[in-house]
């Protein structure tokens, strides 16, 4: 496989992982604009572990995810007390603080960046990405998926039905951060060099955009969003700058035409013939 193709596929797999990190809180009705910060924690923690203690990178990446999740859990309890714009701004501030803190942390290179010795290739990264997709899909096939959607749709009613809405929001936020941290670890161990500047607000925004474009109502939405918007620019070629222009324009137009995203749950059910069967039976009755 050519290096170019491998590079793109690695980026695709990492973006898919990031997208699921953003998807979990969004599915519970929350926007995490600090996602890049949690990805950075995963990247730096796993790199530090594999550099310093020569831990197997796979284990280091998983531990990095747990580190990101632990920070998220500590932050989630006060942050998720806020709502709407306040929540978006609070998560945003968290991301900025993490980035600024890493820039000052000399043990991981500070502003100069941090080289990573251990190296993983596409198969490992693809396996991680596939694992994340399957695990999230399985999770959403359980009562957890129903509960999270219920909290998203109508928090009041969910509460009256006995759902601990805060616990589900904290769980979704924390799990999403674990996944983002794993994505950061994968990135660090393939590209061999990380710098805090990479994990900026722009990264958080781009990932959230993948999810909203793909559609937030189904577990396949983030996969589709990340795939289309990682691969499409490659097909279009052009300079990196024009790719951003195309991406941003596509986001704006798609959001205006189809604010629910490319893929919706109802659409999938229609594809599988479930809705139609119900309606035809209703007409027959």
């Amino acid at each position: 496989m050519s290096g170019y193709l491998e590079g793109i596929l690695v980026l695709l797999a990492v973006n898919v992982v990031f997208a699921y990190g953003a998807f979990l809180p969004v599915a519970a009705g929350q926007l995490n604009l600090g996602l890049a910060g949690f990805a950075a924690i995963g990247a730096y923690a796993s790199a530090y572990l594999s550099n310093t203690y020569a831990i197997d990178p796979i284990l280091a990446i998983l531990l990095g995810g747990i580190a990101a999740g632990a920070v998220a859990l500590i932050v989630a309890v006060p942050v998720l007390r806020t709502r709407g714009i306040y929540l978006a701004l609070a998560t945003f501030a968290v991301g900025q603080i993490v980035q600024a803190a890493l820039l000052n942390l000399e043990v991981v290179g500070g502003a100069a960046g941090y080289p990573v010795t251990a190296f993983i290739r596409l198969p490992t990264i693809a396996a991680f990405a596939a694992g994340v997709v399957v695990l999230v899909a399985l999770l959403f096939a359980t009562r957890f998926g129903i509960a999270v959607t219920a909290v998203h749709d109508d928090e009041r009613v969910a509460d009256l039905m006995g759902l601990n809405t805060r616990a589900f929001q904290v769980a979704a936020f924390t799990l999403g951060s674990v996944i983002a941290g794993i994505g950061g670890g994968l990135y660090a161990h393939h590209f061999s060099f990380i710098e805090a500047q990479y994990f900026n607000i722009g990264l958080s925004i781009t990932i959230v955009l993948y999810v909203l474009l793909g559609g937030t109502q189904t577990v396949l939405g983030p996969l589709l969003g990340a795939a289309v918007f990682t691969l499409l620019p490659e097909l279009l070629r052009g300079s990196a700058n024009w790719r951003y222009v195309h991406f941003a324009a596509a986001v704006i137009i798609l959001m205006a035409l189809r604010p629910q995203g490319l893929l919706t749950a109802a659409q999938i059910r229609r594809l599988l013939g479930l809705d139609r069967a119900a309606l035809s039976r209703e007409r027959a009755a």
């Binding site: 714009i85 909203l212 951003y244 991406f247 941003a248 704006i252 959001m255």
Partner: peptide, 15 residues
């Protein structure tokens, strides 16, 4: 979704 306008405005910044 309530945060779609926010996200769309972010895309404008990028654009």
């Amino acid at each position: 979704e309530p945060f779609v306008p926010l996200v769309s405005s972010m895309a404008f910044l990028l654009l």
